[in-house]
Design a protein around this nucleic acid. Structure first.
Lengths: 217, 217
DNA sequence: GTTAAAAAAGCTGATTACACCCTGTTTTAC
DNA sequence: GTAAAACAGGGTGTAATCAGCTTTTTTAAC
């Protein structure tokens, strides 16, 4: 009566989630979990040791090799495998980035099991699946058509050091002393960074650097 | 041969994780999952509708009623129930905060199923369980004995608005215009906040406010 | 209701650091 | 040798910082 079960793999660094999900999906008569892996590197190893899955459920944030890289690797070496991204985050950026990396769909971990199974069967047949919760955001993003990531700014070690020292009450003169540079050189650094970050004040500089994860506080 | 299974409940807003974990744990001959809930409010409802569990696996970040509040409620209304916090984060703050709220242990979602079952049985018998990964951090924190949160600074709505506007290239004059206040009043705000945050510059102010989670960027 | 105390808002003026300029030197790479 | 980069000096206008003070509003006591 039923067609063949869909063979899948699960890649997620949270062991409890990974194994729990495998247990849950194996209870279904539509899904068969071939193997699971705790990051992209582990996945690459296990793909060579197991039959190829039809669908891979892919977490995004993982150590060693994250979901973006892993998905790209899949699409390069086994383009017939469909990737369904699975994440906690409902933000635009990771969703779009995963789809750009080659994922055929995106599910939230808040989803119900039945919806996930529907997504897996959907993606297996049609190569893509976008659920409603996410599609609204997608549409908005595509319509706005604004570049997703403010293009990463290239900075060197000295500029980074300067940025870190900027996150304080230190005056530029004091920063110059700490970095063993002339205050005028610091001026040059500042102006260069103002241009790069499109800002006009030290505060704006710090905020921009923080937003781009260049510095931490 | 085996003793009675341990009755537990799972509280987590990620449906897939919750149900997957339930499926996984129900496969064990030591654990019986009585019910699950997607947040603290749901948990309170279901506790009244089900037999009392011995142990509750509790996520921290949840909508409507988070892990801290939920654990406090448990300890107030059913102090005999042990709470095992379950989270992705290995940071000090949430761990300590959950233990303070009354949790008897803390497990990372990166853990293995066997470790979780060990933790559950451990906490059921001894009322607490701290795994090694986390205990190192705990010890460090206790040894350092530094206050976990720099004592919260009290600020009013206007000061908060001002702080938010400070995170920009806007000059104080422009901020005064936006807030419909005299630039001199802005001076007063700034000076008051400089004192509260023990800083001397706009940059220091923004950094301090960010550190205290008063503003987001 | 009056009134004193406290808090918030507003003002003046002086000093300092920041933002921005142009120019020149040293270092590095090809 | 030349070009690019990093570094450095001098100088200017503006915004930020800071101290001290007055006025208005709020709070609370009487």
């Amino acid at each position: 009566m039923y067609p063949e079960k869909i063979n899948i793999a699960i890649v997620d660094d949270h062991t409890l989630f990974r194994q729990g999900l495998a247990s849950l999906l194996n209870d279904s008569d539509k899904i068969n979990v071939l193997f699971d892996a705790e990051n992209g590197q582990d996945m690459i190893k296990k793909i060579s040791q197991n039959p190829l899955p039809e669908v891979i459920l892919m977490d995004i944030t993982m150590p060693l090799m994250d979901g973006y890289e892993s998905t790209k690797w899949i699409k390069q070496h086994h383009p017939e495998i469909k990737v369904l991204a699975l994440s906690m985050f409902e933000e635009d950026k990771p969703i779009i980035a995963m789809l750009k990396s080659g994922a055929g769909g995106y599910m939230l971990k808040q989803s119900k099991a039945a919806d996930l199974i529907e997504a897996i069967t959907g993606i297996a047949q049609q190569s893509f699946y976008i659920n409603e919760l996410v599609s609204g955001k997608l549409l908005r993003n595509i319509q706005n058509n604004q570049p997703l990531k403010t293009q990463q700014v290239e900075i060197n070690a000295n500029e980074l050091k300067f940025l870190e020292l900027c996150c304080s009450d230190l005056t530029y003169k004091q920063i110059a002393d700490i970095m063993n540079l002339s205050p005028h050189t610091i001026d040059n650094y500042r102006e260069a960074l103002f241009q790069k970050f499109d800002t006009k004040s030290r505060t704006g500089l710090v905020i921009a650097a923080l937003k781009q994860d260049l510095i931490k506080i």
